[in-house]
Every structure is written in C-alpha cells, then in structure tokens.
C-alpha cells in the first residue's frame, strides 16, 4: 500500500516513521507548503517525493491512502478533498475545528465510499488500553470516579497556529480531547459536563482547562489539560470503583530517562515516546492499514472522533458560558 503524508510537521513525521516500519507499506510522497531541511532529508531516506500541496499528493494515482497531519482548521478541506479523490484517510485528532466541519467530513467520506480513521492514539497506549479493558471487564466493580490529567509544554511550531484559538481550539482540542475520547470509550455516553479554563483569558501558551463529567451510567470523571509543563509530557490516569482502584501515571513508568545539560533548543510539539518496542503510533497505524486493506476496523471510528469533538467543544462552550452542558441521551 502506498501512502501520501499531507503535512510535514511533527505528527507527519511520527506517522511516516510508523508507516516505514510496516511491511508492504511505502510512503511515496509528502505534501506540505513548508518543510524543514531535516524532514526533506527524512523524505529522501524513505524514497518519498516532496510535493508543494495536498492537491499534488491527491492527484497522484499511485497514492492509495493519505495521512492528514495539517493544522486542525485545515482538516476539513484536506479530508474532503482526499475523500473526493478516492483515498482512504487517517486524520490526526481532533477530527475538525467545528462540529459542522466534522459532520461534513463524515458525509464526504461516506459519499465517496472511502475509509476515515482518526488518530485517537491514546486508545493504543498500553496503559490506557489495559485500564479500559479492566473497567469493561468489571474488575473495578461499579466505576466511581475517573481522573485524567494531560500536561505538556505549549506546542511551538513555525507559524504558531496553536496560539489562534479559532484555528487550534487551544488545549481542550489539542490535549483534553484524547481523554474525552478515552473516557467516552470506557464509560459510554455523557450526560453532563462543566468546564473551567484559561482558553479565553490567558496567554495561549499558558492554556489550561479542567472539566467535570457525569456519564449516563452515573460514573463521574475529572479531566484536565495543560500547556504549563515545558519540561515534557506527563499524564495521569486513575479510576476508582466499588472493587478497587487503578492508577497509571507517566511519572515513574518511563523505563529509560536522561538528565542532560540544559540546552537552548526550543521544544516543538511534545510527543510522548519511549520504552516500548512497538510504540502506540505504530500499533495504531498497523490497525489502520489493516482496515484499509480489508481487515477489521481500528479501535476508534470517525463517529467516535465526532463524539469526542462534541464533548471537547462542549467543554469550551461551558467554560465560556459558565454553565454546564447537557448532552442528548442518544450520544
């Protein structure tokens, strides 16, 4: 299978690395308006062409599927264009910047008869997958309170698009949406959600938010995202229940760490890495490629991504209005 990668930022590279580790899969082209020298070199190593636009990639007849790793507000246009070009698609999360965009994307994909996967990769992080399985199997009894936190440094990228809430959706759409997706996957539909956050009142590089979620099942959850951790990615996960408590934190479970002399290099987009032979991005990509080639569907669907987006946008709305958001029973 031949893949085009649209977007040559950090996530474009992460997905290309995963693709390069899968047999019978080849990255044949990158499409990006801007590409760094190191990415250009990496493309050369992969034997991939570097093209100036998404359209140039989608016009290529030898491209069977594309990875969309462009800024959030461009997901819609690129995915719709890719669907019309008959390509299967793995789109980075969040699916889109708005619900309208996301719904239009799902429609375009259905109309074109192509497959759309969305990079809710946390479902492939082994600790999150294990915790999900333990809850679903009932090992915790009745789930009581789930807690997720996700912290990293502010993602500094060349055109600084994360700083524009209208483009990125801030920390809620970048970080918390991972946990909203995991929580919904694990505990089912949400009844109500209330959030407080800094999205509309702090510098974008200090964005942070906290949400309280009540699921229709009666389980409660607390979710938090923050860009105030410049020293690196950190996550915590906890679920209590009538039969016990599970906890999984990134601190103390990193089997290889370094403490290096301070450098002045600016951090880009923080991506949690290390300590596994098959990293979560590779696990996700294997599932996605298998699905594209006729296998079973991956752990999250386009509809799941739409619902995660609905919760995340609900959190933004709630923090803006100061009121909780109530969700329809069908969700």
């Amino acid at each position: 299978m031949r893949i085009g990668v649209i977007g040559a930022g950090i996530m474009g590279r992460v997905h290309a690395v995963a693709l390069s580790q899968i047999q019978n899969v080849q990255v044949v082209a990158f499409g990006a308006r801007y590409i760094s020298d190191s990415m250009r070199l990496f493309a050369m190593e992969l034997g991939a062409d570097v093209l100036p636009s998404s359209t140039a990639v989608l016009e290529r007849q030898d491209v069977d599927a594309v990875v969309v790793a462009v800024p959030t507000d461009s997901h819609h246009d690129v995915v719709v264009e890719a669907a019309r070009a008959g390509k299967h698609i793995l789109c980075e999360k969040p699916l889109a910047r708005t619900l309208e965009q996301a719904e239009a994307m799902l429609e375009a994909v259905a109309e074109a008869g192509v497959k759309l996967a969305v990079g809710h990769v946390v479902r492939y992080f082994p600790e999150y997958a294990s915790a999900h399985d333990m809850v679903v199997k009932g090992e915790l009894g009745t789930p009581g309170v789930a807690r997720t936190t996700r912290g990293a440094g502010y993602p500094r990228v060349p055109d600084n698009w994360y700083a524009d809430i209208a483009r990125s959706g801030g920390v809620v759409l970048d970080m918390m949406i991972h946990d909203f997706d995991w929580l919904r996957w694990t505990f089912g539909p949400v009844e109500r959600l209330h959030a407080q956050g800094l999205t509309f009142r702090s510098n974008p590089d200090k964005d942070g938010a906290m949400a309280i979620v009540r699921f229709q099942s009666g389980t409660l959850a607390y979710a938090e995202g923050s860009w105030s951790y410049p020293s690196g990615f950190r996550t915590t996960l906890e679920v209590s229940g009538s039969a016990g408590l599970i906890r999984a934190t990134s601190a103390g479970t990193t089997p290889l760490t370094f403490e290096l002399a301070p450098s002045t290099g600016a951090a880009g987009v923080a991506v949690p890495t290390g300590g596994l032979v098959d990293d979560p991005y590779l696990l996700q990509m294997r599932d996605v490629i298998r699905w594209f080639t006729g296998g079973p569907s991956p752990r999250s669907s386009g509809e799941d991504a739409l619902e995660a987006l609905r919760l995340a946008l609900g959190a933004i709305k709630s923090m803006r209005s100061g009121r909780p958001m109530t969700f329809a029973p069908s969700i």
């Binding site: 009745t142 009581g144 209330h194 309280i212 009540r214 959850a221 209590s240 009538s242």
Partner: peptide
C-alpha cells in the same frame, strides 16, 4: 459546581464528589 454520586459503597450518602470552585477574581480550582 459539584457532581456527586454513590458508587463505591452501599451507603445512603455520597462517596463520589467532584467540585469546581471559583474564588474572587475568577480564580478557579477543582
């Protein structure tokens, strides 16, 4: 703002409690 529930123990009061608290000046805490 608070969500409460009884999930961990068969009791007549809440055992699950999550709060969002706002202080003067808009400072918030969970």
């Amino acid at each position: 703002y608070a969500e409460t529930a009884t999930r961990h123990h068969p009791i007549a009061v809440d055992d699950s409690a999550l709060l969002l608290i706002t202080l003067q000046g808009g400072l918030f805490a969970s």
